[in-house]
Amino acid sequence: MPTYDYECDACGHEFELFQGINDPVKKKCPECKKNKLRRLFGTGGAIMFKGSGFYQTDYRSESYKKAASNDKQTETKSESKSGDAKSSKSAKSSDSSSSKSSKSKT
């Protein structure tokens, strides 16, 4: 539930009120008891994350980022080596098939 800011136009009293989003807007000032209370625009309806848990779970540590980048580099190196091996195998097979076809024609 959000916290809303209120101000009384009669006495100038300002305060914050913790109330639900669907609750009606308060009209009566708790200080002077007049119906001159109005809700102020601001961050009252916004969600505010407080505490250390939010930041610890949503952002990775530097050691994690370094390990992840090292893993990514290792994967790209192994993929490029396996890709070279595959291309050399396919080149050898095409060479052998072309040599077989040239022998059979003669």
Rank of each mutant, 00 (worst) to 15 (best):
K72C: 08
F54A: 15
T43P: 02
D58A: 14
S61R: 05
T74L: 10
E75N: 07
M48S: 09
Y64D: 14
S80Q: 08
K81F: 02
K77C: 00
L40V: 09
D71A: 08
T76W: 00
N70E: 15
S82I: 05
A68M: 07
A68H: 03
G53C: 03
A68D: 11
D58Y: 05
T76K: 12
S63P: 00
G51V: 05
K65T: 09
G44D: 06
K86C: 09
A68S: 07
N35H: 06
K33A: 11
S69K: 11
F49R: 10
Q56W: 00
S52K: 05
R60C: 06
D84R: 09
T43K: 08
S61Y: 01
R38M: 05
K33E: 11
K77L: 08
K33R: 09
G51S: 06
K34L: 10
A67K: 05
F41Y: 03
S78M: 10
K86N: 10
L40Y: 00
G45C: 03
G44N: 04
S61I: 04
D84E: 13
E62D: 12
A46D: 13
D58Q: 13
S78R: 13
T43S: 09
S63Y: 01
K33N: 12
K66L: 10
R38L: 05
D71V: 05
G53V: 08
R39E: 12
I47Y: 02
S52W: 01
Q73D: 12
S69T: 08
D84L: 12
Q73L: 13
M48W: 01
T43W: 01
N70T: 10
S63R: 09
S61W: 00
K81Y: 06
K77E: 14
L37D: 06
S80F: 04
K33Q: 14
D84K: 12
K86F: 06
K86Y: 08
F49C: 10
G53Y: 02
Y59V: 15
K34T: 15
T43L: 07
A68K: 12
K33S: 11
K33Y: 01
K81C: 03
A68F: 04
G53W: 00
I47K: 09
A67M: 06
M48D: 07
S80N: 11
Y64L: 06
S80R: 04
E79L: 14
Y55D: 14
K36E: 15
E75K: 07
L37T: 05
A67C: 02
